[in-house]
C-alpha cells in the first residue's frame, strides 16, 4: 500500500513536470480558463438575467468552473493515449510499480492542475465582481466539490484514452463528450428556458446536478439535497470508471 502511494507520487511528479514544460498544456491550464471567465461574463452577461441573482458572473462562475474542469479532465485521456502510443505505458507495466499508480498519478496531477485552474478563475472572476454569498465554509465546500468533479471526469476520460489509444482521437472524443453535456445543462442558462424535451434531459444531466449543487454553495440556499445528489452522481461515475480504467490498463497494449 505504501508503495502504491510512493509510486503514485512519483508518477504525479513526472506529469506535473510535463505540465509546466509543454507549452500547449500550460495554455490549457492558464489562458483557456481565464478566457472562459471573461468571454462568458462579458459576451453573455448582458443578455442572460437568471432570476434571483444580481450579477450574471455570480450565476455563471460555478458553471464555468465545470466547463474548464471538464476540458481539463479530457486532457487526462489525451495524455494516457499519448503514453500508450509512445511506449511509456509498456515501460511502466514492465516495472514492479503498483498497477494503479500510473493512472492515479495521472489523475492526481490533473487534480493539482485543476486546483490551480480553480484558484486562477476565481481570482479573475473576483476582480470583475464575483462574490461568494454563502460564507467561507460553503465556498470551500464548493471548491472541494468542483475538484471532485474533476477527479471523477478524469477517471472517465482515462478510460476513454485507454480505449481509443490515440491522443488525437482522445482529444476529439473528449470535446464531443463535454460540449453537448455542458450546453444542455444549467451551466450557462436556467434550464426552464429550454424546450420541454431538452429540459427533461437537462434535468437528469449530471452536469446540471453538479452545477446546481455548486451554485447553491456559492449563492446560498438549502444545500443538502443538491450536494447529496451531486455526490451520488460522482460516486457512481467513480465506481464504474475507476475499476474499468484499471482493468483496461492491465491489458493495455500499444496500438
Amino acid at each position: 500500500m505504501t508503495s502504491t502511494v510512493a509510486d503514485t507520487v512519483t508518477v504525479t511528479g513526472r506529469n506535473l513536470r510535463r505540465l509546466v514544460r509543454v507549452p500547449t498544456l500550460l495554455a490549457f491550464a492558464t489562458a483557456q480558463p481565464v478566457l472562459f471567465v471573461l468571454l462568458f461574463t462579458y459576451a453573455w452577461g448582458g443578455a442572460v438575467h437568471p432570476p434571483g441573482v444580481d450579477r450574471y458572473i455570480d450565476y455563471a462562475l460555478p458553471g464555468i468552473w465545470v466547463l474548464a474542469i471538464a476540458f481539463g479532465a479530457s486532457q487526462t485521456g489525451v495524455a494516457l493515449a499519448d503514453d500508450l502510443a509512445t511506449g511509456m505505458i509498456d515501460r511502466f507495466r514492465a516495472l514492479p510499480a503498483a498497477r494503479a499508480a500510473v493512472l492515479a498519478g495521472r489523475v492526481a496531477a490533473d487534480a493539482v492542475r485543476n486546483a490551480f485552474v480553480l484558484a486562477l478563475m476565481t481570482a479573475v472572476a473576483s476582480a470583475i465582481g464575483f462574490r461568494f454569498h454563502a460564507g467561507a465554509v460553503a465556498a470551500l465546500a464548493a471548491l472541494g466539490l468542483a475538484l471532485t468533479v474533476g477527479v471523477a471526469f478524469s477517471w472517465v476520460f482515462a478510460l476513454l484514452g485507454l480505449l481509443v489509444r490515440d491522443a488525437e482521437a482522445a482529444g476529439i472524443g473528449g470535446l464531443l463528450a463535454v460540449v453537448p453535456l455542458v450546453f444542455t445543462s444549467s451551466t450557462f442558462v436556467p434550464i426552464a428556458t429550454f424546450p420541454g424535451w431538452l429540459e427533461a434531459f437537462a434535468r437528469v444531466n449530471p452536469i446540471t446536478v453538479t452545477v446546481d449543487a455548486l451554485r447553491v454553495l456559492c449563492l446560498g440556499g438549502p444545500a443538502a439535497v443538491p450536494v447529496g445528489q451531486a455526490l451520488a452522481w460522482l460516486g457512481g461515475l467513480l465506481a464504474v470508471a475507476v475499476p474499468a480504467a484499471v482493468g483496461r490498463y492491465r491489458r493495455a497494449t500499444t496500438a
Binding site: 513526472r14 513536470r17 509512445t86 514492479p96 510499480a97
Partner: peptide
C-alpha cells in the same frame, strides 16, 4: 520509450523510484 519532456537524469531517477 523515454519521457521527452523529462531530462535524461529525471527519466532514470523516475524508473529507479518505480523499481523500488
Amino acid at each position: 520509450a523515454v519521457d521527452a519532456y523529462l531530462t535524461g537524469r529525471e527519466n532514470l531517477t523516475m524508473i529507479g523510484r518505480l523499481s523500488g
